[in-house]
Design a protein around this nucleic acid. Sequence first.
RNA 1: GCCGGGGUGGUGGAACGGUAUACACGAAGGACUUAAAAUCCUUUGCCGAAAGGCUUGCGGGUUCGAUUCCCGCCCCCGGCACCA
Length: 1157
Amino acid sequence: MNKYDPKNIEKKWQVVWEKNNLSSAEDFAKKPKFYSLIEFPYPSGSGLHVGHCMGYTASDAHTRMKRMQGYNVLFPIGWDAFGLPTENYAIKTGKKPALVTKENTDFFRKQMKTLAYSFDWDREINTSDPEYYKWTQWIFLQFYKHGYVDPSTGSGQAGKLVEIADDDRTTPRLAYQAEMPINWCPSCKIGLANEEVIAGRCERCESPTAKKMQKQWMLRITAYADRLINDLDKTDYLEKIKTQQINWIGKSKGTNIDFELKQNANFIILHGFTGSPKDNFFPWLRAELERRGYKVQAPELPETNNPKIDEQVDFVVDKIKIDENSVILGHSLGAVVAMKVVERLKHPIAKLILAAGFIEPTFKDHKRPFEKTFDWKFDFEKIKKNTGSTIYLRASNDYAVPFEQGDKISNLLNAKIVDFVANEEHICGTHEPVVFDACVDKVRVFTTRADTLFGCAYIVIAPESDYTSNLKSQISNLEEVEKYIENAGKKSDLERTELQKEKTGIRLEGVKAINPINNEEVDVWVADYVLSTYGTGAVMAVPAHDERDFEFAKKYNLLIKEVVIPFEGEEHKGAEFRKTVSAVVHRRSDDKYLIVKWKKFDWFAPSIGGMEKDETPMQAVEREVFEETGYKVKAVEELGGQIESHFYAENKQVWRARIDQPVLCELRDKTPREVSKEELELHEAVWMTANEALQKITHPYNKIGFERYTKKNYAYIGYGKLVNSGEFSGIYSKEAIEAITKKIKKDGNGDFAVNYKLRDWVFSRQHYWGEPIPIIYCEKCGIIPLNESDLPLELPDVKKYEPSNTGESPLAAVSEWVDIKCPRCSGPARRETDTMPNWAGSSWYYLAYIMLGKEKEKIKKQKNGTVNVFDEFKKELEYWLPVDLYNGGMEHTTLHLLYSRFWHKFLYDLKEVPTSEPYQKRIAHGIILGPDGQKMSKSRGNVIIPDDIVSTYGADTMRAYIMFIGPYDQESAWSVAGLQGVFRFLNRVWKNVGKVKEGIDDPKDLLVDLNKYIVSVTDDLENFRLNTYVAKLMEINNEIDSLETVSKDSFGIFLKLLSPAAPHLAEELWEKIGGSESILDQTWPKADAKYLILDYVKIAVQVNGKLRGVVEVGSKATQEEVLDIVRKNSVIANWIKGREIVKVIYRPEKVMSLVIK
RNA sequence: GCCGGGGUGGUGGAACGGUAUACACGAAGGACUUAAAAUCCUUUGCCGAAAGGCUUGCGGGUUCGAUUCCCGCCCCCGGCACCA
């Protein structure tokens, strides 16, 4: 028999398999379908690495079993070809990225074929192929053209998917633009991807990077946050993948609370054409403002049906008292009057609010009489000078005032625009809360702990939030505040994330906010421990119940007010109330604590005693400790707030409700004095370490003082019972959150709210090698989406691949591509020059395998390429989706996996795909470390190249070893010795084929074992327990090793079980033993039940829990029969001799356990 | 800090609450060989001559029986990280 020579046999079979096309999937086959997806690779220049091999080998083996089990398996592969390394390579060499990609994918394909991965090569796709990215761009356009509108809020966060007209500028779109920071290298003058920023420095020149604000495309993934969490229930993802996604999305339910800023404002409300102070929202607004103690003047202007400008302005200036604290609000024509009034004033006012105002008589519907009688010239500079700030309120449902008026006024007056949907068109509802919000300066905070609202000591605003811009006139230390804000902005990511950096902040002097629950005035701070990107960018600080606020309050010496106290036990009505103190006595010499041991009840507790009248906790504790233990101590400080506990006091036989104050004490004497006899009988003093004490102390409520001191955590952040909280005192946190929020809501100061950690997806990249974003900017028409029929928008050839020094992508320099005519007005227009991130193409590639590829191209070509592939291949999508099993890396859990679920859900809403989730099951493999146990990297020189292994040992050894290396989902280190072990195993298999004889009977033991292995090997492979799968193959082979001959049938079964791991060897030996056709066409073995039921079984016998022997009994033997055999067993008989058997436990086929006395 | 996952021989690792250490590596001894490699055979958790005892990070608990379940602690890995 010749030697096992993998080189020869592997090449031989790869050719045969490819010729017979054994791994292509058939649409609509009658067999059950199985879609097995493996993450497609980024075709880098360095080729396939062992990490790829891990996933591919595992999925390939599983897939091979599935095929043999009779499934119609779709197991496709492709290339995630857009990305930075290729672009960087192009910058260095000047080679075209598309060409580089072609070379790389050719190399990858060849490598994959030598490893016999049974991919369906007819369906190969490439994300950088224009025929592919045509559809990536198409999906982007759909994002642009659609949005979710919640009719009640207009927030775009929930509700129904609607199509949005191109000229609609207010409905929130799923793809939208926003000013977002990019990583900017000031020295290279280029924008950097996150991966190019290493520890806060530019990868190329190592100078620190900064943030630069730039308009970027965003995808509103947050609109799907809830569904991305909830629909995880429908999937079989690994539990850790689910939790990681849930944590990443980070949903928290809480309350938005408005803290009104105290101001001396008085309000002047000016009505519009044909209006009066009794119209519209005016009476409601007036009532709201007056309820809050503001003075309101709402005059009726002269000749309201036929108004003349000078007359009305004169009237206001003469008759109405206007001062520096005045806020003038004009609605519609009243806004015009308001501007004219401000223009005429000799002093500034606090604020000007223009609701549906205009500066040109250009109405959408009909002409008004005043259009001619009014004077339409304004001195905008003067108006601007005469007002502290200006707000322009613009309703998207305004029938009269053109939308653009807002932009114009905003530009001229530097006004802040508030876009909203009014309760009635032209802001004419009787309630218009948005108008009210514009009148009163408020800071809105988000909290999950509304129950602690009474403990709010101050509020904190994030430095980046624009709350402060409205407040400038009131801030007396403005200069310092602005300096703080500027410094905070300069801080790099590096500094911001520095470990446990000390909190800093600055108080806005002259500004006070009003706590809406009790009308208390609180300070307002700006501090960078508050994030502008989460919630409302402002928080209420409750130092007593939040660690961060506690730390901040300690540093700046701010009020710490306790409003929630821990509550232990069960509420017991009629319990006897008692105020106590408990002592945490720390002995520094040996770091031990004084604990009192109760002799009668075997309790451990700190020294505790009741407080007497007129005693402070500090005094009480000194007395108590001395009386109880004889130690003289000095009270140092109170450890946080009080603790309420209800319990049955066995020593006194009563229900007690105890309010306890823990106090830290210092030991004054080393030795105790004598204590009274009664005390001595009750308890003794013992010294313990903190850990011991925490373990020994009997009741949880007595541990709290120790925990606070040993963990240095004085802020009580848990739930409990409210104190010092007015009408809410005495109720529990959870109820209080509900009750306080309801009260806040009723008073119009806030509402329940939900927030997510998940941010919208920044979708613009300032790079060349990505999908161009199909958008056109026209000077006149604004943003115009490219016509779908003009897709794909192909990347132009460029000379240079470097980013431009303006922060734009290299495409911006290709004027013949960028500068085009507007498709609508034929005026000058520019293309968007940013490209999509590399996550875009991979967000739908599993759909592309179904719709694109060689065969599908033919179908499309027959139809002239005008088809929508989603419609064209609807039936195929229905047949194959969802992906049954998606295998990949753990590192993709929170980006790729989440992004593609988001895209899929959107396509589902568009009715382009039939399922709401793309992947039924997701598993992930661990990484392979180098032989030194370190992560493989070129710089460490511990990289294993698959090609080297294949050329030395063959692909089968590589495959089997990679499966055998360790648990699939855990990281494992590469081991050369282990690899050789697997090679030896395959050699022994090769030799054992010589033992095969036809027409012989195998020993029964072999048949029994073989059938057992069929069951467990199948189960292992199904569940990716690949290391034990290979181990079991070894066990079977070892068993064959020990035999002289083996039947063809049995060896054939073994080869079939082996074929997923070592397909070439299995096929070669299958041929050698004269098997029919290819082993790939064989049916996966099924266990023969007759070998699984045994006549005799071995039973372990335990005596008093210890193994004392093994007996063989009939598998159907009764307990009595087994016991009889056990008694007769000499070894066991020795153990039970002279003792009484009190209990017998018998588990058939497993164990008999005897308890003897 | 929070959320996951781990901790078993000299090493990688097996074990539905039921004979802990499968399988592999390494090591030792032996066979073949002039010799080595390769291959094959034997031994291999620790203590002990043996009987037997001890052993799954540490300390408790539940159970006839715990690597497995529960409580507390220590250490390692991964993710998130001032998310209010």
